[in-house]
Design a protein around this nucleic acid. Structure first.
Length: 451
RNA sequence: GUGGCCGUAGCUCAGCCCGGUUAGAGCGCCAGGUUGUGGUCCUGGAAGUCGGGGGUUCGAGUCCCCUCGGUCACCCCA
């Protein structure tokens, strides 16, 4: 008789459930992103969630993302594998493995894992949208993808997004510059914050990213990468900027922009949402990674790409009050105050005909069923009571007050489908969850009349 | 990973400083407001191991410790 208390589980730290209506909003966001990508000739690539640990080590031995934050473990066959902390490494591995025809322009939408201390806009499991374009050295490609991301943000309604851009130069340029920065910082080592001194030893460039106030003055006087760019790099960068100018994409040059993943060469950029706090205002970032394919054991191949953070984009949308969740809609909500037989059958038949329909289970009064209909967001309540049953008819009640929907009326069951499709051809559609309302895909035996 | 703040009904929160009868509110949910009709209004109702564990005390939501989770800053990055 003693009831043992069961432990209540909750989602793992840094991981959360995405419930309706937020789930629909995310899907819509992804949908819009895909539209932009495919319009520009990018196709989807779906790499595995798990890779050999080496795949990730190859792209960033010195980065926190792979050294400290990776979910890596020994598999049952003793191989060391990891949940991907980002998508580029896996896409590059796939590229090298399959050697697709160049140029290879792909987009992805996927989940990544990073074992960090969670915070708002920073979760251990998070989704990224991104593109990778391989096999093209042309600066215009940099422009293409930056413009694409920029347009995507704009299409969501975001206005306060700043594009920060910089060039880190070719491999050698970057090496020389890094050394210059290292020497400079070393000279001012004891003026730096303790944390930055530690960073200096591991990765001098990253010190330029420090947000600590005591570092700011020193950072401000650090050498500029622009002085270390080769002629080719400088030209490439100039053409990128010119291209952005030509397309009307505004940007801010940020000579301190280095970015966390170490594989970037030449162009690097970041999208900052000014409506968000600085801790999570990076809603996207990317750049060129011309040496990556080689590092992965493939042929030398140029590449550019970016990754956008779904959660942060949504956060930015919230902050700007745009891209609101669309209320869910339904064509018809079926109310049956008799036996429930009619609700069961008619709902099924409507769906077969491509009309979205729902109902309430377990009966209930007319009033309570109407409430459910209201809550469902349905355009019409379809009412079946004793009278309708006897008359082989239904009552159609418009719920949303659209003029085109007319007044409440009695419709013969034989005419119901015709009556409803008249409206569905106008605007009875569900924006979030579009259903194919074409009768071609509907069950032919049900496409005529409802009985 | 380091430090600060927070954790009470499904949600937003009051109560905690100054321990003491059945822990409250709004929203939401459910049911009614006579004959079959939602969105407004009125009435009633259900719903809380006061994040979890331990301690102090005659007595703890209220005090102490630990722990889990969230959040903010750093770090890092999307």
């Amino acid at each position: 008789m003693t009831e043992t208390r069961r432990e209540q589980f909750q989602a793992l730290r840094g991981m959360r459930d995405i419930l309706p209506p937020e789930s629909a909003r995310r899907r819509e966001l992804t949908q819009q992103f895909i539209t932009h990508c495919e319009r520009a000739g990018y196709q989807e690539v779906v790499p595995p969630l798990l890779e050999d640990l080496g795949v990730f080590l190859r792209v960033g031995e010195a980065t926190d993302v792979v050294t400290k934050e990776m979910y890596d473990f020994v598999d049952k066959d003793q191989t060391r594998i990891a949940l991907r902390p980002e998508m580029t490494a896996g896409v590059m591995r796939a590229f090298v493995q399959h050697r697709p025809v160049l140029p290879w322009k792909v987009w992805y939408a996927g989940t990544n894992f990073r074992h960090e201390r969670p915070q708002k806009g920073r979760y251990r499991m998070f989704d990224q949208l991104g593109v990778e374009a391989l096999g093209v050295d042309d600066a215009d490609l940099d422009v293409e993808i930056i413009a694409m991301a920029s347009r995507f943000f704009a299409s969501l309604g975001l206005r306060q997004v700043t594009l920060l851009i910089n060039s880190l130069g070719e491999h050698e340029d970057r090496e020389q510059y890094t050394e210059a920065v290292r020497l400079y910082l070393l000279a001012h080592q004891y003026e730096l914050s303790e944390a930055s001194q530690a960073t200096l030893e591991r990765n001098p460039l990253r010190v330029l990213d420090s947000k600590r106030s005591e570092d700011q003055q020193i950072i401000a006087d650090a050498p500029l990468v622009a002085d270390y760019l080769s002629e080719d790099s400088a030209n490439h960068y100039a053409r990128v900027l010119a291209g952005l100018d030509s397309l009307g994409v505004s940007y801010t040059e940020d000579p301190r922009l280095v970015r966390g993943l170490d594989y970037y060469r030449r162009t690097t950029f970041e999208f900052a949402a000014d409506a968000l706090d600085s801790a999570q205002n990076a809603i996207g970032g990317g750049g060129r990674y011309d040496g990556l394919a080689e590092a992965m054991g493939g042929p030398a191949t140029d590449g550019v790409g970016f990754a956008l953070g779904v959660d942060r984009i949504l956060l930015a949308c919230d902050a700007e009050g745009v891209f609101a969740t669309e209320p869910t809609t339904l064509d018809v909500f079926v109310i049956d105050t008799v036996s429930g037989d009619a609700a069961r059958d008619i709902t099924h038949q409507l769906r077969a005909a491509g009309i979205s329909a729902d109902r309430r289970f377990g009966g209930g009064s007319m009033k309570s069923q109407m409430k459910s209909a209201d809550r469902s967001g349905a355009r019409f309540a379809l009412i079946i009571g004793e009278d309708e049953l006897a008359a082989h008819a239904v009552t159609l009640r418009p719920m949303l007050g659209h003029q085109a929907d007319g007044e409440q009326r009695r419709v013969a069951r034989a005419d119901l489908l015709f009556e409803l499709t008249r409206y569905s051809s106008q605007t009875v559609t569900n924006q979030i969850n579009p259903h194919p309302a074409d009768s071609a895909s509907a069950d032919p035996t049900n496409s005529g009349t409802l009985t």
